[in-house]
Structure formats: C-alpha cells, structure tokens
C-alpha cells in the first residue's frame, strides 16, 4: 500500500494555541487516485490539505509526497524556507479564493512558477503557459488581467498556474465554493479531465455528487479526526457511521446525477 501511495500521512497532529485541529491523522492517496475530503466546517479538512504541502506545518507526524518526505516527530529543526519551498514546488494547490496575482496578466500568472522557481527561460515558460491555458479553455485570455475574468475563469487560470509546476499531486481547497452556481460546472469539468489523465488529487469539497462520481475514495472528517474512509460511492450513498449519515443528510436533494 505505502509503496504505491503518492501521498502518505502518518500521525499528523496540529494545534493552534489550545485548539487541536488535527488529531493523529493517517491517510494514504494512491498514485493516480482522486480522494475527496468531506466534513462539516471546522472539521480540520482544509488544515489537513494545507499540511500536505506544508502551508500549515504540522506539530507532529510524517508527511510524504512522491519521493519527498519530512518526519516532524523526529526532526531536530523545523524545515527552513528553502526546504519548505522545494517541497511545495512538487505539489500544486488551488484555493477557494483563487489568489491569482492581480498585478500580472493571466499568462504571467502561469509563467511565474516555471520562471522564478524552476528557472525556465521566458520563451519556454510562455509556451508551457500557452499549452496549459489551452487545456483549461482560456488560450485567448493569455494577456488579460485577472480582474477581467469571471470566477470560473479565474479558477481555471489558478489550475493552470498550479499545473505549470508539473506537480506530483494536485490539492484543491474548496475550489468551487466561491463560485456562482452556473460557473461551478466549468471548473469541475477541468478537475474531472485531470482525473481522467491520471493526476493524483486530494480535494476538499462540498460537491457531494461530484465527489461520488469523480473521486475514487472519500474521507469523512469531523473534529480533527477521520471518522470514515472508503470507496467513494459507498461512503456517500451508504455510509456506515452515524456522524457521516448525519452530515450527508444535509445534502440530499443536491445529490442527483452530475
């Protein structure tokens, strides 16, 4: 199992002051799998996702993504800026609020990682950005400022920006939660096509139908713990834990075919 796992978390713990947000989380994501993290707000799922690329540095535990691993339980010194940056460069992340760089064009947003972090030439990075923007259906917006885009378009640019680093895994933190309902579909379509290409993905989502249809596995979290984990269709349609059932009951009606 762990040999094929692309993401491996063992005993991850995180507290903010007195508040324990993650209590001993262990989680594996196999290469090419899509895993959806679901749960009520405050359950720690976003913190868990942010721990995978060390945007939130855990207090304890072991984290491995691809061939990079850090053990926070034994480490004498916390990893420095250089080590953290190298680790993060191998993961892509997409945020609820897009977080595009507003002072750069769409194309420059996508080129920023390859040029500044990977030291690619501008021409090389521009060609890559062009390909990726084409892939998310925004080739004609290359020179537009992010301000001029719709939410769905912004999020697709953010996905292209993350993909430009050729990441081992992609992390989505409620990527569609800030979108108007009619724009959700275009972003989910891009994520779905990435899944089809075999990208390993971990996503925090409130789109239960999408999780059921696109994810291989679903992890239900509550109060900083993994309550239930299993095959996506089974967890969402026929959960075994009472807490999972109670949570999912809020979504009935929104659980139609997608």
């Amino acid at each position: 199992m762990s040999e094929k796992a692309m993401i491996e978390l063992v005993g991850v713990q995180k507290s903010f002051g007195n508040l324990t947000v993650l209590k001993d989380i262990t989680l594996n994501v196999k290469r090419g799998n899509v895993v959806a993290l679901i749960g009520p707000s405050g359950s720690g799922k976003s913190t868990l996702l942010r721990s995978v690329n060390l945007l939130t540095v855990p207090d304890k535990g072991f984290i491995r993504v691809g061939d990079q691993a850090i053990d926070f339980s034994t480490a004498q010194n916390l990893p420095g800026d250089k080590e953290l940056s190298a680790f993060r460069a191998r993961t892509g992340m997409v945020f609820q609020s897009f977080n595009l760089f507003p002072h750069m064009s769409v194309e420059q947003n996508v080129m920023e990682g390859p040029v500044t972090v990977l030291r690619q030439s501008k021409d090389e990075a521009r060609a890559l950005a062009h390909d990726l923007l084409g892939k998310v259906g925004l080739a004609e917006k290359a020179s537009a400022p992010p301000d001029s885009l719709s939410g769905g378009q912004k999020q697709r640019v953010a996905i292209a920006r993350a993909l430009a680093m050729k990441p081992d895994v992609m992390l989505f933190d409620e990527a569609t939660s800030a979108l108007d309902p009619e724009l959700v579909g275009e972003v989910l379509a891009v994520i779905r096509s990435l899944a089809g290409e075999g990208m390993t993905m971990l996503l925090v989502t409130h789109e239960m139908a999408f999780a059921r249809d696109v994810a291989d596995r679903v992890v239900f979290m509550r109060d900083g713990c993994v309550v239930e984990e299993g095959e996506a269709k089974q967890v969402i349609e026929n959960p075994s834990q009472a807490a999972t059932k109670a949570f999912l009951s809020h979504f009935h009606g929104g659980l139609g075919p997608s």
């Binding site: 690329n53 945007l55 800026d81 680790f87 993060r88 953010a158």
Partner: peptide, 26 residues
C-alpha cells in the same frame, strides 16, 4: 492579502522571491 502569500508558497516560491515579485509590487 494572505492568500497571495499562500499562492506564492504553493508554487514553491522562496520568501524573498515572494516579497520581491508578488507582495512588494502590490
């Protein structure tokens, strides 16, 4: 916005790169 720091970190930018290319220009 702290989201700008998140975004820069997420693509592997070092602190000084983020400061120079993302935060200070804004």
């Amino acid at each position: 916005d702290s989201g700008q720091w998140d975004a820069g970190r997420a693509i592997g930018m070092r602190r000084h790169q983020l400061m120079a290319r993302v935060v200070l220009p804004q």
